[in-house]
């Protein structure tokens, strides 16, 4: 780890101010990913701005939504009564990630900014376009069992490792930012980028922008939502494939509305819009769930090690939707 300056910011404005003081700056939340990457010399900031002193509240919004400050710990979010009752998918996604110790440290903002677990990204002896643009990618013909099947490029096949973001993508979350040019907000699904030929640029954040909060709009039917994660251990492992889903079925057994997002399959949390579109208005049947899954995975590309994820993702989508449909009384 290279030496760095440490500043603790009292508020977002101060954090942004500190950030501008050095060419290489990083905001520090719980440190669960950043400290590891700094120790690996992958992140080499000259200044680290501790933003854990910023407000860490969870607030109800008038229309029934929630605003979660970016410094809020993962455990706090997962334990929050409103989250558990109105957005079980979010609580479950958080609880499916990492370990209790890490969830006690990790912040919401830091979770959004997590970097990939690609083996070749972590090893500076390997070629990685994400670490060094134009170097090449050793994962494409190497160990790629945990890599992307959707939206990848010939430059990068890494995945985004977060569970929480998958739930947030499904819930239409909005990310609030504060930066040198002032405040703005983005849809979470627009925050992370696909790799293209610049996999080193992972988000739409502008230089110095700090994530200050995440808003989850009201979504009454999210009361019937769930997160299903498939991984190599029963606990404490990153997702091979995960599905965040919320389903609203009408009296006739038709899908009134649906939210679906996938994890472990792409460079960003993958909102399954094609599947959602295929499902809206259609009977909530296994056959339709399968059709929707096929639509979503239509363009999926498997590598030598990860082709299984295509079928796995389809099955988990179908299975998860079936369970939600069953819960809502629409047997399929």
């Amino acid at each position: 780890m290279r030496p760095f300056l440490y500043e603790k910011a009292a508020d977002a404005a101060e954090a942004v101010h500190f950030f501008a003081q050095r060419a290489q700056a990083k905001y520090l939340g719980g440190g669960t990913n950043l400290v590891d990457l700094m120790r690996e010399n992958i992140e080499r900031p000259e200044i680290v701005i501790d933003v854990t002193g910023l407000s860490r509240e969870i607030r109800d919004v008038d229309d029934g939504g929630l605003v979660i400050d970016a410094g809020t710990k993962n455990t706090t979010v997962a334990s929050h009564r409103t989250v558990r009752e109105r957005y079980p998918v979010l609580a479950q996604a958080i609880l499916a990630g990492a370990s209790a110790q890490i969830r006690n440290m990790a912040t919401v903002g830091g979770n959004l900014m997590q970097r990939t677990r690609c083996y070749y990204f972590y090893d500076d002896a390997a070629r990685c376009n994400k670490r060094e643009r134009g170097k090449g990618c050793d994962a494409i013909e190497g160990f790629n069992r945990i890599h992307a099947i959707l939206g990848a490029s010939s430059h990068c096949v890494a995945t985004h490792p977060s569970d929480m973001c998958v739930a947030l993508a499904a819930l239409d979350a909005i990310v609030y930012l504060e930066g040198p040019q002032g405040a703005r907000h983005l849809r979470l699904v627009d925050l992370h980028r696909l790799p293209g030929d610049t996999p080193d640029i992972e988000t739409e954040l502008r230089a110095g922008e700090l994530i200050t909060a995440v808003e989850i709009p009201a979504l009454p039917f999210a009361i019937r939502s769930t997160y299903r994660k498939v991984r190599d251990r029963s606990s404490y492992a990153f997702a091979l494939v995960s599905v965040a889903a919320a389903l609203d079925v009408d009296d006739k057994g038709n899908v009134r509305d649906v939210r679906l997002a996938l994890g472990g399959v792409a460079h960003k949390p993958w909102r399954a819009t094609a599947a959602e579109q295929a499902l809206r208005g259609a009977p909530a049947s296994e056959e339709n769930f399968r059709r929707a899954a096929e639509a979503e995975l239509k363009d999926a590309v498997g590598l030598a090690g990860n082709a299984f994820k295509i079928e796995l993702a389809k099955r988990v989508i179908v299975n998860t939707l079936q369970k939600l449909a069953m819960e809502s009384g629409a047997g399929s």
């Binding site: 677990r117 083996y119 070749y120 972590y122 090893d123 002896a125 390997a126 050793d138 013909e141 190497g142 160990f143 190599d232 251990r233 029963s234 606990s235 404490y236 492992a237 990153f238």
Partner: peptide
């Protein structure tokens, strides 16, 4: 069920030298 040291045959290098990516059984397993 889960343990495997990933030896990249192109480089002769171990690619998962970590307890995060080499899966020893956890309590839940």
């Amino acid at each position: 069920l889960s343990e495997e040291t990933l030896f990249d045959e192109r480089s002769g290098r171990i690619m998962n030298p970590s307890l995060a990516e080499y899966h020893v059984p956890v309590h839940m397993d």
